[in-house]
Each structure stands twice: as structure tokens, then as C-alpha cells.
Design a protein around this nucleic acid. Structure first.
Lengths: 147, 147
DNA sequence: GATATAGGTTTAATTATGAAACTACATGGA
DNA sequence: TCCATGTAGTTTCATAATTAAACCTATATC
């Protein structure tokens, strides 16, 4: 009666969620994008129990999303940094951010904005586009199962 | 000692995950995009325990992601369909799908493809672009907290 | 009306999460 | 050097969530 594993599912969404589909992992990744590297930094930022932070960090390292490296300041501690695989989660975070900002702030608007650093202006919503550049709605897409 | 709630966090990612950040919710939404509507359809597709399917459906309805409507075939049963808010999760699912397909199929490539229906060709990776169309990497972005 | 199916609820066992205490090691200061 | 403090965890125990299976009721089918 274990938590059902999705790591052998055919669906890439299921496999992705098997690795990062819990309450904390993507928040750790978010903080890693924000520049946090140390156990204590994550702990303070997220306010989560230390034992489960330990488990999550180990899991993210095991999944190849984070890498544990010697501390940059020369101290004997470790630091956790995003791997290329982890950095490629950026669109997932942006999509979640945009959805959350639009739909989960019913009273006053969200005060945290993602900006284009060069122009200091907000980043427009992610759009799904076809190879030829056409904007696509969900209905414009379909699933194909390759033999 | 309840599960820590993130629904009052300032961060839109945290608020989004508070609603859909569990193992099953996004898979239910995925199936809803695929056209599934009935309790039994979700149950069969996902293979999850029925009681927690009940809880998740209720939660998704309460969050305004799904809506419970009378069955389309005139029977007395209910069906669960995506609301506009739920349909706007599409970029999240696409981002997860693309990441999972790229990184979670180490042996043989993923056999499930998302296609542009009109051309029957694969949909290219989501890209983050500035208002002026420049492609943005994570390093090209920054967070601003509005006063 | 009898039977089967859909859509749940209930129950009990297992697993995950959480808070706090505890430990080991590193660092900094007197 | 010695002590105090900080970092990074681990351990323990209580609580909450997930699971599987049995059960239940209303609906649909014959």
C-alpha cells in the first residue's frame, strides 16, 4: 500500500509529477532559482520541517535536479545548486506563477512580479505556439501515441 | 500540526501549489483536457483509490478548476468539466509534459507526443519571451515586489 | 420488479508530514 | 585552547494523508 509510483507511466506529465509533484519540491526549486543554496537558507525561506527538507533535498539531488557541491565560500558545508535539468523547470515555474497570480489573488492583486531584467517590465503570459508561430489553444492540439 | 497551508503566501507559485500541488490534481486536470468527465472514467484512467478521487474532485470544484454539471447524456449522474480557470492550466501541463518527456525517459524516448492538430506535427518547446519578443533565460528575469 | 452498474462512503492499515529535541561538526571569539 | 554559537542535519513521537477493500445507495437496464 505504498504511494503509487508514476515513474513507469507512459505519460510524461505523470513522470514529471512523480519527481516534483509534491508540496515542497517546486518551492525549493523556486528558491534555488532565486539564488538560495544552503540548507539553512531553504529552511528559513520555506519554514518547513528540517527532516522533510532533508528528504526533499536528497530526492531532488537523486533526480538530478539539484547538485550538492562544496560551499562556494570555502567553508566545509555543502550547497545545493540547480543542474541544467533543474534549470529547465523554469517554464513550469513561470506557468504556475502566471496562473497563480491571475487566479489565486481574488482580493488584491499579486504584488510579486516577474520582470524582464533588461527593460524592467513585466513578462507577458506564456503562449503555446505551433512550429509556424500560430497561437494554439488546447483544442488546437492533440495527443499522438507513437508506435 | 496540519499540513502547512500556502494559500496566504505572497508568492503566486506557492498559492498555485496550494491548490494543485499534490500528486493527483494535475493528473485529473490532464484527463479532463483529454475529455474525461465522469467519476468512473477518472477512476479507471488514474487507478487511484475512489475515496481520494472523491476528495480531489471536491477540492478541484471548490477551487473553481472543475465544475460539476448534469451529465451530458441526460442521465442523472454528474460530470466534471474544466472551467475557464481550469483550462488556463494548459501551459502548466504543457511545460510539465515537455520537461518530463525530455528528462524522465532516459532509456527509450517518450512515445506520447503533443501535436499541432492542424498540421499533425509536434509542438515546439514553450519559450519565455519579453514583451518585445526577445527570448529570456532565467538569468534575464528578476522579481520585483510591488509596494 | 430484479439485477447490475455508477458513484460514492466507511473502515482499518500504512505512509507521509510536522514539531521539537537531540547530535555532530564547524566556526568565531576570549 | 576553550567555550559559545551556528550549521546541518538525525531521531523521536504525534498527527494527518493516502491506500485498498468492503460496503452502501441511487440509478440504469432488462
Amino acid at each position: 500500500m505504498k504511494r503509487t509510483s508514476l515513474d513507469d507511466a507512459d505519460c510524461p506529465i505523470a513522470r514529471a509529477l512523480d519527481v516534483i509533484g509534491d508540496w515542497w519540491s517546486l518551492l525549493i526549486v523556486r528558491d534555488a532559482f532565486f539564488g538560495l543554496r544552503r540548507f539553512g537558507e531553504f529552511h528559513k525561506s520555506l519554514g518547513m520541517a528540517k527532516n522533510i527538507l532533508t528528504v526533499r533535498l536528497k530526492s531532488l539531488v537523486a533526480s538530478g535536479i539539484l547538485e550538492a557541491v562544496p560551499a562556494a565560500d570555502g567553508s566545509a558545508y555543502r550547497e545545493y545548486v540547480l543542474t541544467p535539468k533543474g534549470r529547465e523547470l523554469f517554464p513550469v515555474l513561470v506557468a504556475l506563477r502566471q496562473w497563480g497570480a491571475k487566479h489565486q489573488f481574488p482580493d488584491q492583486p499579486c504584488t510579486i512580479e516577474l520582470l524582464d531584467r533588461e527593460k524592467s517590465e513585466p513578462i507577458p503570459p506564456l503562449e503555446l505556439r505551433a512550429a509556424d508561430g500560430r497561437r494554439l489553444t488546447p483544442a488546437d492540439t492533440m495527443i499522438r501515441i507513437r508506435a
